[in-house]
Design a protein around this nucleic acid. Structure first.
Lengths: 167, 167
DNA sequence: AGTAATTTTCAGAAACTTTTGAAAGTTTAG
DNA sequence: CTAAACTTTCAAAAGTTTCTGAAAATTACT
């Protein structure tokens, strides 16, 4: 496989992964492009490289910055914005996980909290509802706590000790 | 909050969570409904409860069975199929994670493997590409291995010891 | 075999998401 | 202040996913 081909395959594959992770295809492709670019890039060059419109490039870049995985750089004496990606893949994973928790897990935990106030009632229907929502509540809290700890642990600890401990 | 209201809120919230987890809204709602139902349910009653078409119900139930989180039960002397959900939330999480790995992580790992064969070249572009794809490859393999171990660990071990170890 | 109950399929409709590109807005330098 | 450089917005178009409902297929009973 040639370099150019590999490059494109990687951008493509990352784009596909992204769309199943709450980051849409263009966003993920821009991220992939910035990940493998040794220099930060302008909106123009990103548009050109990926054949996307100015509007799309702008919107996706802002969303990526919002996710905290891409940053803007200002070069003194230059008007253009330059963009670069977080390249420490552990940090990217932590950041994406953090955002997903905020966007997805938290709303569920909120609803489960509200649901606790359902007054006691007789009947199997109620019993089962109570049991399942409580189980999920406990589990969600645990996962939530785990995210916190993981975000604080550093990669070395994670990949080294954790895997050993699980053996 | 009334029982009925809580019930609906829960189904709603689970549906929303589902759509960000690769399980679409209807699928997740059906799963929620089955989770809190003390008895297994027929296609008919699911359709009625959620106001969805027969086609949708049938398709979503099959997809849920495909994910391994909902099962079919055959009652002797009855023609209808009855459906019930896996209620152990730890098992559900393991199962969903396993499927997502298969559908999402594996294709990326495959591409990264192919990309390794890109012949060496001079230039920063190549260096950066190599470095990043190798980093991601290593990370993906580790996450992949972690999934395996997690699937084998049981919930008690997980919530008890693991959280303690992370302190 | 015939019939009724039930499940599956699938083409088109509806809903939702993403992308475009042109226009409006903002910033900076002279 | 003006103009050029650059960024942002937004309405409409394109693309994608999900859902419907009726027809076809399957099953199982008499």
């Amino acid at each position: 496989m040639e370099f150019e081909e590999g490059r494109e395959k990687f951008i493509q594959a990352w784009g596909t992964l992204g769309s199943s992770w709450g980051i849409n295809r263009t966003m993920a492709q821009i991220q992939a492009l910035l990940l493998i670019s040794p220099e930060s890039m302008t909106t123009e060059s990103i548009m050109e490289e990926l054949n996307i419109s100015r509007g799309n490039a702008n919107m996706s870049l802002r969303a990526l910055m919002d996710w905290g995985v891409v940053f803007k750089e200002n070069r003194p004496g230059e008007r253009k914005d330059y963009f670069y990606a977080e390249k420490d893949i552990w940090k990217v994973a932590v950041q994406v996980t953090r955002e997903r928790r905020r966007r997805e897990l938290e709303p569920l935990i909120r609803v489960l909290g509200q649901v606790e106030s359902v007054p006691q009632e007789d009947g199997e229907e109620y019993q089962e509802f109570k049991k399942v929502t409580e189980d999920i509540s406990k589990f969600a809290d645990k996962v939530d706590g785990l995210f916190d700890k993981l975000a604080k642990a550093d990669e070395h600890w994670f990949v080294g000790n954790f895997l050993k401990l699980l053996r």
